[in-house]
Every structure is written in structure tokens, then in C-alpha cells.
Computed example of a mutant assay.
Amino acid sequence: MRISQFNELMSDEFGEQFSAVLMRDLKLSGFNDQTPNQAISSGEDPKDVWIAICQTQSVPKSRWHGVSKKPGSNK
């Protein structure tokens, strides 16, 4: 996953302002309590970080590919 796709998913799901808060403050247990910003900066795959955020924030699995998007969809 490209970082631009990751950012789009974050913005679509949480809005720009709350996304910024999550990126800065949310501790991800699967990444040694790093924040999403720290995990991505340390080289973690944005897709893995996105899934961890979805799990932590109880995002329904149906939206893990994006709001109103389906697996394999280009939109």
C-alpha cells in the first residue's frame, strides 16, 4: 500500500483532523506501542498499520478496504 492510499483511507474513515490525532497519539500494541506515525517512519508497511488502526478503533471489517470500496476495486 502506498502512503497516499493510507492517507486517503484514514481521511475517509476518520476525517482529516481526527486522523491527525490518531496518527500522533494512538498507541498500537502490535507495533510495540508505537504511534502510527512512528511505525510508518520506522519502515512498517502502511497496510499493516492501517489494519492495526482498524482493529484498535473497531472499524467494521467491511470498511477495511475503504468507505464504499470493495477488495480489488480501483475506486
Results as ranks from 00 to 15, higher is better:
L22T: 00
L26Y: 00
E13C: 11
E16A: 07
I51E: 07
G15A: 05
I40N: 09
N32Y: 02
F14D: 10
T35I: 05
N32P: 00
G15M: 08
F18C: 04
D45N: 15
E16Q: 11
Q17N: 14
F18I: 07
Q34F: 09
E16F: 11
A52S: 14
F18E: 13
N32M: 07
A52W: 10
I40G: 02
Q57E: 15
D45F: 08
L26M: 04
C54P: 04
Q17L: 15
L26W: 00
L28W: 01
G43D: 08
S42C: 08
V49K: 06
R24N: 15
V21K: 08
S19W: 08
I40P: 13
L28A: 05
I40F: 08
G43Y: 02
G43F: 02
G43R: 00
A52I: 10
Q17G: 05
S19C: 03
L22S: 01
L22C: 06
T56E: 15
F31E: 07
G43M: 04
G15H: 08
S19E: 14
G30K: 11
K47T: 06
D25R: 12
I51T: 08
T35R: 03
C54T: 09
V21P: 00
Q38E: 15
V59T: 14
Q34M: 14
D25Y: 03
D25A: 09
P46H: 04
Q57R: 15
A39Y: 00
V49A: 03
V49N: 00
F18R: 13
I40H: 12
L22V: 15
